[in-house]
Design a protein around this nucleic acid. Structure first.
Lengths: 145, 145
DNA sequence: TTAAATGCAAACTATTTGCACGTAA
DNA sequence: TTACGTGCAAATAGTTTGCATTTAA
C-alpha cells in the first residue's frame, strides 16, 4: 500500500475546499492507491479505462492537478521527460533501478538522520529526499552490466 | 566553478571516441563550465548566441547528448517538464529553493555517510543523491511563506 | 577527401487551454 | 438549478528526426 490514506480521505479533502467528488477523480485516486509503481498519466488512463471508458486524458491531468493541490498526490521526477504520480505523500525516498526503471519506495526512517546543519550557511532546509540508483532484485537486472 | 574539468578535457574525451570537436560543442561545454546555475537548453542557446549566432537549438540538443555520452555533462531533474544540465559530473547533492527555484550544488562530503546497507534486501545501490528543498539565502526567499 | 556535424523544418510527445455540454451538490 | 467538471479538439512547449549543406580531421 503506497499510502496511509484511503478513498474516504478524498471526500473530506475535496469537500473542505469546495471541490466536487466526481467518478473520474475518484478513479484516478483509487488507481494510485491501488498500485505502487508510480504510473504516468498514460498508464493511469489505460488502467482506469480498461473495462469501460470513464475518463479522457485531459480530465486525468485536471484530476491530478486538483489532487496535488489538496495534498493527496505528489509527482515523482526520476526520468527525463517523464512525470510519474504517487499517492504516498508522506516523506520517503526512492530507489530507481538503472536496468528496468522500476521505482521502489524506501521508508523515511532508512535515511532520516541527515545532518541538515551541515548545509552552507543561509540555506534553510524544509525537507529532503534521497534518490538511490542501482539494480533491483530481478535476476535480469542483477545480471545486467 | 561547477566542475574540476576544463575545456581541454573535451578534446581528450571526444577524440578518444572518434568524435569531432566543433565550435558548437565547445561553446556548449564552455558555457556549462562557466556558469553554475544548471541552465536549460533554451538558456544555453540564448547565452552562446548572445553576441553572434553560432548554434541552432537542434545542435545544442545534439551536443548535450554527445557530451553526456562521453561523461562530461549530466542532466538535472528537479522541476516538472524542465531538463537542466550540469558540467559537474562528480557525485554531489542539490539544494532547490522552493521560492525562487535556484539550485545550489552541495558537496558530496556533506552527506557522504548514508548507510546503504539499510536498503531492503535485493536492492543494490550504485550511487545516490540527496535533494534538499527549502529557502535560499535571498531575503525575498527567506521572507516568503 | 569524406564521414560526421550543422541547420532548418517537419514530426512527435507531453501537457495546457477554450469551449459546448453534462452533472454533482 | 447552476457553478463546476468533463471531453474533445486545437494550441503550446520540449525534444527528436530527416535531409541537404557544410566542415573537421
Amino acid at each position: 500500500m503506497p499510502s496511509n490514506y484511503t478513498t474516504k480521505d478524498i471526500r473530506k479533502r475535496m469537500q473542505s475546499q469546495g471541490l466536487r467528488i466526481t467518478p473520474q477523480r475518484l478513479a484516478v485516486y483509487a488507481n494510485l492507491l491501488a498500485r505502487s509503481d508510480h504510473p504516468t498519466v498514460e498508464e493511469i488512463l489505460t488502467d482506469i479505462n480498461r473495462d469501460l471508458p470513464i475518463s479522457s486524458k485531459a480530465t486525468i491531468y485536471s484530476a491530478l492537478t486538483v489532487l496535488r493541490e489538496v495534498g493527496l498526490v505528489k509527482e515523482v521526477l526520476l526520468e527525463e521527460g517523464v512525470t510519474r504520480y504517487d499517492a504516498n505523500v508522506q516523506p520517503h525516498h526512492h530507489f530507481c533501478c538503472q536496468n528496468c526503471g522500476a521505482i521502489v519506495d524506501i521508508n523515511w526512517e532508512t535515511f532520516s538522520n541527515l545532518q541538515l546543519d551541515r548545509l552552507p550557511p543561509g540555506l534553510h532546509a524544509e525537507g529532503y529526499e534521497v534518490i538511490i540508483k542501482g539494480k533491483c532484485e530481478r535476476p535480469d537486472c542483477q545480471m545486467a552490466s
